[in-house]
């Protein structure tokens, strides 16, 4: 029972991270109509900037703004040079141009910092574990991620439902042409949305640093999961991104945790069972996505109709 609770929290933590990326991705797609494969690269940039800053200064508090700044800056440059020219293109051109961006950014990071993964320690203030219920200790750092992530989700929700900017974002997601016709500076709105997405991705990258090894390719690993989230939740919907992220995060974590137990019961050869369960649990979220698309092609919480 305690194991299940622990894994559920791990799933929640992964879900929250996925949400930070998916929120940006779904807004960028919903409002700007851009499929941005390079979103994972922004996460990687944030993680590298955070890890290098933490290493140089020894302070995780400085790593956060550094990661945000690096991701935000990269986002603005990318938007200005490439993305801006893709607004009127079809999905195919967008996929390929941003695929080119991935190749470039990944190699650039390899040239600058090498192939060796970077490791970041958990900040001392957040290290250790607390007992969430008597007898069940859980990592403080992971709890912090969950708390901060949920707070950001709430903030985003308020931004979108309660402010003028949020109103424009919602309007842009459903009636883009109308917003433009009413004289809103759509270009500025686009830049703001893209910048917001980049910041969220960069923040997720910094937070991921102490949990994963920071290396080239980390962006794509999470990017594909993020796409699953966006499609499951419904393209363009923040609510969809939130619930989609939690569902995907928890399903993935639970499968990874409990599939080996199940498989060892079915397959006698231990190493074969482990390989099989690793593969099958990696397939899990894609099966989930395929099922959702087949039942509700527009996703669980589609923004329009």
């Amino acid at each position: 029972m305690t194991l299940v609770l622990e894994q559920l929290l791990n799933g929640l933590q992964l879900g929250v991270m996925l949400f930070l990326l998916a929120a940006g991705l779904t807004l960028i797609f919903g409002i700007m109509g851009i499929i941005n494969l390079a979103h994972g690269a922004l996460y990687m940039v944030g993680a590298y900037a955070g890890a290098l800053t933490a290493k140089a200064t020894g302070s995780f508090l400085l790593a956060v703004p550094a990661g945000l700044a690096a991701a935000g800056l990269t986002g603005i440059i990318i938007e200005y040079i490439v993305i801006r020219r893709l607004y009127d293109r079809d999905h195919l051109d967008q996929v390929l141009a941003t695929y080119g961006l991935i190749l470039f950014l990944n190699e650039l990071v390899t040239i600058l910092f090498g192939r060796q993964p970077l490791f970041v320690g958990v900040p001392p203030a957040l290290s250790g574990a607390v007992e969430i219920i008597p007898g069940v200790p859980y990592s403080v750092y992971r709890l912090t991620i969950i708390a901060v992530g949920l707070m950001l989700a709430l903030g985003l929700f308020l931004l979108i439902t309660r402010t003028r900017l949020g109103m424009l974002i919602r309007a842009g997601a459903t009636h883009r042409e109308m917003v433009r016709a009413l004289g809103v500076d759509i270009r500025l709105l686009y830049t703001l949305v893209f910048g917001l997405g980049a910041l969220l991705a960069g923040f997720a990258g910094v937070m991921a640093g102490p949990l994963l090894s920071v290396q080239v390719g980390m962006g794509e690993q999470i990017l594909i999961m993020t796409f699953v989230v966006v499609v499951v939740g419904g393209v363009g919907s923040i609510k969809g991104a939130f619930f989609g992220a939690l569902i995907v995060g928890i399903v993935d974590t639970l499968l990874r945790a409990f599939m080996p137990v199940l498989m060892r019961g079915l397959v006698t050869n231990t190493s074969e069972a482990d390989a099989l369960s690793a593969g099958l649990s990696s397939m899990g979220v894609y099966v989930l996505m395929a099922l959702v698309l087949l039942v509700r092609p527009q996703g669980l919480f589609a923004a329009r109709g």
Binding site: V228, G279, M283, A290, L293, P297
Partner: peptide, 30 residues
């Protein structure tokens, strides 16, 4: 299955099926 969707969803569902097969073959130790 995939052709029941269109647009971005089609791009993503074909990607999803390819990923499933990729991980399936990673899992096939045999």
């Amino acid at each position: 299955l995939a052709l029941r969707t269109a647009g971005v969803q089609f791009i993503m569902i074909t990607l999803a099926f390819a990923q499933m097969l990729f991980f399936l073959f990673v899992a096939l130790k045999r």
